[in-house]
Design a protein around this nucleic acid. Structure first.
Length: 617
RNA sequence: GGCUCCGUAGCUCAGCUGGAUAGAGCAGCUGACUUCUAAUCAGCAGGUCUCAGGUUCGAAUCCUGACGGAGUCACCA
């Protein structure tokens, strides 16, 4: 917890050097210290260029002075070399021993940052209740979960929440289809997972609607709509695509029915509410299974049906205070031009709420509940504008905490064939995907002699860890803001830069450690660390910085790449060095303890990604 | 069209708060298991960092502009 990395120490001492020698204050963090590039002699390098002009000196003079200063300080510089403006340092062997000792002392908490007073709310997943979760939700969930873990490990108090969009026209569509065609079926009678069950009726509604729309296009009113409203040179097909929503709201019989159901819901019609509750419950039961499969949970759930009224009230208040304005048709708007945005509708002319209305209510409730220092919304980048508008609206209303709202925007997931389109049935279902990756892991393990004797249940648990490890790592290794291509065949790869590769490094270590009594092992300052061991120590030393940076940027991919680098370096070390039959007892103990720390750090890194480590594979 | 984001090896991605010769993995080709777990390791090959200017000791990284791709600009969410 109070571990200070070598780079931090070098920065601190260098800052002190400039204070002592030049009577100038430099922020330690502004002093550039790098891990040395491969193929160059040394462990760390200090970049001298930035100081040369300022202190009217040259690299050799400054470098020698600095090196001399280091040598009398605690950092333990063994030797130095000045090359092209870089001061390259090799640390004393004993520094590595003492650093590893400090790491071991921190145990599982190595890398964890001291607790601060910040509460961070992280919203993620936030599904609609009319259909099952898909690949897009999976990226969302994994990013949100991992960001939460990282924030927690970085010292914050974290609250994981979601807003469930449980009301509105979408769920009414499913309800209507069930009423008309369900014949009283339930998830139990049809032996279907609840969310899929409800989704089935949603799809059914869309199909019926589509058919109705197609035949309407052949009727006189349908043709007339094209003639009247079609733009010049607009093809029929394009027009009808554009006109679909309007048709739904004005001419569609089935649309009329759905909207009538929504009105009944809003007026609190008992039977409608009961059905709505029932269908939502089916969906929640289904979601819960998916969350459990993915290994995620939430601290608090918000429901749109609970928050939209507060949102409406805030809009009314804002109107009363003339922060917002009303158009002649009765719709209420906010002018966000001061924020370089547009005008945004807050309430429809019929008084019903739109998306942003409930988001206002939700933000307020959330602030009341947690008094957060930061509230993070994990939502795809297609909603970038929406969140700008939401935050600006909150600011316009006058909420101080509006500056603490943050949209963690992530890119949408594409398939190799292009965009996922529900209409074309190319959406990858979350549950199917999980089954697929776990099957693939089982398939890859069928020849493993390490698992043959295990009970079936234990094997299944390992396959789940590995399959999910592959899937989660594949998604999390990409920076959130980048759009990513999801190639199903690549996502189940278990070789190279993958989750299983990292898990394998851990498993190898665990296997070795299981053959000795670790409590008898002691580090000795007599042992001279080998280059590959120093490489591992350099990586381990950086873990805290990785945690801090990842928390600051809300970027799990940073942790993912770190875990891979560490695993890769370990695999190499493992290949080239004997551990249990090391040259000397000193070497054996040193390597065992080093391996132990690597295993712990790998496990912790993967934990931050929401990935479990199996003990065998 | 306005605004926002992205553009690095055949493919998937790092590196981006400016630092040394731009890195991994996959795919391709060569090798290494009677050995602590080969889901591993080593090697070969693969680049105009989209392009053009600018800033500077130094630019994949910062700025400007172009080109290419995506998103958004709903009384949808």
């Amino acid at each position: 917890m109070d571990y200070t990395s070598n780079i931090q120490q070098l920065q601190l001492i260098t800052s002190k050097f400039f204070q002592d020698e030049y009577n100038t204050h430099l922020e330690p963090k502004d002093i550039i210290v790098n891990v040395i590039a491969k193929d160059i002699q040394g462990d760390y390098s200090v970049v001298l260029f930035p100081f040369l002009k300022r202190f009217k000196t040259n690299p050799n003079e400054l470098g020698d002075k600095l090196a001399a200063y280091y040598k009398q300080s605690a950092i333990g510089v063994q030797s130095h070399e000045i090359i092209k403006g870089f001061l390259n340092l090799t640390l004393k062997n004993t520094i590595w021993t003492s650093q590893l000792e400090a790491m071991l002392e921190s145990g599982e908490d190595y890398g964890r940052q001291a607790a601060n007073d910040n509460t961070v709310v992280v919203e993620f997943c936030s599904p609609n209740t009319n259909k099952p979760l898909h690949l897009g939700h999976i990226r969302n969930i994994l990013i949100g979960w991992s960001a939460s873990q990282i924030l927690d490990f970085a010292g914050n108090t974290v609250k994981k929440v979601q807003i469930i969009n449980d009301r509105g026209i979408a769920i009414c569509k499913s309800m209507l289809a069930w009423l008309n065609y369900g014949e009283g079926a339930t998830p139990e009678t049809s032996n279907t997972k609840g969310d899929h069950f409800v989704g089935h009726y949603y799809v059914m509604f869309e199909q019926k609607f589509k058919a109705e729309y197609a035949s309407w296009q052949e009727t006189e009113p349908g043709k007339k709509a094209y003639a009247d409203h079609g733009k010049e040179k607009e093809l029929q097909e394009a027009f009808y695509k554009r006109y679909k929503n309007q048709y739904f709201n004005t001419a569609s019989a089935i649309g009329e029915e759905a909207r009538a159901l929504l009105l009944k819901w809003e007026s609190g019609d008992e039977a409608t509410i009961a059905l709505w509750k029932q269908m939502n419950q089916w969906v929640y039961n289904g979601f819960d299974i998916t969350y459990a499969e993915l290994g995620v949970d939430f601290d608090k759930l918000y429901y749109e049906s609970d928050t939209y009224l507060l949102g409406k009230k805030m809009v009314q208040d804002g109107l009363d205070k003339e922060i917002f304005y009303k158009k002649d048709d009765g719709s209420i708007w906010v002018d966000l031009e001061a924020h370089k945005l547009d005008h945004k509708i807050l309430l429809r002319s019929d008084g019903t709420s739109v998306y942003i209305t409930q988001d206002i209510g939700t933000a307020i409730k959330r602030h009341e509940d947690f008094g957060f220092n930061k509230s993070v919304y994990v939502v795809a980048d297609e909603q970038d504008y929406h969140f700008q508008a939401l935050f600006a609206t909150m600011k316009t209303i006058g909420f101080e905490f509006s500056d603490q709202l943050y949209h963690l925007s992530y890119g949408m997931v594409d398939l190799p064939s292009g965009k996922m389109k529900s209409r074309e049935g190319t959406v990858v279902d979350a549950d199917d995907l999980v089954v697929e990756v776990v099957d693939e892991a089982a398939n890859a393990a069928k020849d493993s002699h390490n698992l043959v004797d295990l009970p079936e249940e234990e094997k299944q648990s390992i396959f789940t860890d590995i399959g999910l490890g592959a899937l989660k790592y594949f998604i999390l290794k990409v920076q959130p803001k980048k759009r990513m291509t999801f190639d199903p065949s690549q996502s189940v790869d278990m070789q190279g830069q993958t989750g299983p590769y990292i898990q394998n490094a851990y498993v190898r270590i665990r296997s070795v450690l299981s053959k000795v009594e670790m409590s008898e092992m002691e580090l000795s300052s007599e042992y001279t660390w080998q280059p590959q061991e120093v490489n591992l120590l350099i990586l381990l030393d950086q873990f805290g910085k990785v945690v801090v940076d990842s928390a600051k940027d809300l970027d799990p991919s940073n942790v993912a790449h770190y875990a891979f680098d560490l695993a890769k370096e370990y695999h190499k070390f493992y290949h080239d060095h004997r551990i249990l039959t090391a040259e000397t007892e000193l070497a054996k103990a040193a390597r065992l303890l080093l391996s132990h720390k690597v295993a712990q750090t790998l496990k912790q890194s993967m934990h931050l990604l929401g990935i479990n480590m199996p003990e065998k594979m």
